[in-house]
Design a protein around this nucleic acid. Sequence first.
DNA 1: ACCGGAAATCTAGCAATGCTATACTTTTGT
DNA 2: ACAAAAGTATAGCATTGCTAGATTTCCGGT
Lengths: 191, 191
Amino acid sequence: MVTATERRERQRAERHQLIITAARELAEAEGWEAVTTRKLADRVEYSQPVLYGHFANMEAIRDAVAIEGIGEMAARMRDARLAAPEAEAIRSICTSYLEFAAAHPAAYQAMFSLPTQVKWASDETPAPLRAAFNEIVSAFGPFNDRNAALAELIWGSLHGMAVLLRSGRIPQEAQGQRLDLLVALFANAPA
Amino acid sequence: MVTATERRERQRAERHQLIITAARELAEAEGWEAVTTRKLADRVEYSQPVLYGHFANMEAIRDAVAIEGIGEMAARMRDARLAAPEAEAIRSICTSYLEFAAAHPAAYQAMFSLPTQVKWASDETPAPLRAAFNEIVSAFGPFNDRNAALAELIWGSLHGMAVLLRSGRIPQEAQGQRLDLLVALFANAPA
DNA sequence: ACCGGAAATCTAGCAATGCTATACTTTTGT
DNA sequence: ACAAAAGTATAGCATTGCTAGATTTCCGGT
């Protein structure tokens, strides 16, 4: 009988996702330092060892949240770019990037600030990560060395802005002006 | 007798600095997660409670390392700017910033990535932090709104580059080209 | 319908962490 | 020389990530 094991597989996959979602919600609500194995196990209504049946350790759980978040952000950037006129491509990408970072700070932290085992610029880079990067590249045009370099650069700028803003290291108030300036700089990029 | 208490004050200050230095060395050698109260107490050859006579908690020790690091980085940027021709001001600031980040990753992490209680854009902002920021501003000219905005922006870019580079999230190889592009973008900033 | 093995799950525990109450030792002023 | 005060250490608590072992639940074959 196949259906029995199939059902178990499905339930296992559901529980896998349940853990990721619970971890993410808990992190957004109380910060990553509050996401302990005990609290998380409590939240998913299983005991701690069950978590380790799905993930090697807590870091792996955070990485799963990170990858999910990156997929979501890539989708948002894509939507924004397609909805905006082509001349506004750069601005729409920047805005949606920063909006995502502000709206989901814990997920964003997992994605770009916390220690991780996720491979980035390598062969095993997960698809959502490539998608996100390609999304930024396409704000500048077709995929080539120049546009990839611009994408890495503006990504760095956006990340820096997001994290320094969030931690209060640069003031919130002049943010609109700062964004205008960023867009203007990159729009004038030499060919 | 004043000299007795004076001597104690001095010894206390020395031990304060000893703790900061030991924490920093340990962090650079084994990462911040290895800087535990026990290891640190061992290293300074005192017991754990002594640490709490100097700092409220471990975070306060990290913050002290951060402030020290920022002071150092500000000095390096200043030296670099003064040593370079004026036309190269932006490049020299960028290079010295990224060099510091690469040379002292643990200190850099304490400065700009790890959670902190240090107040940035506020009245109580420690002097080294202001110095560092003003150093970046002066790469663009006198202190005014436009140059301050440019400074915040390039700071964000540099920070983003530093952290994404360090974590392998953008490739090391095209870094020279990326830096050229960054400098070119900001050198062409509209007045 | 029931039983034996396997899979799933939990209980209970370890070592390590940040931090602190309390006991002890040294120094200080009279 | 001696009490008070300051300095320091010992020993412990609660919490953490993680796991070995016991226990329960499930499933296919008779």
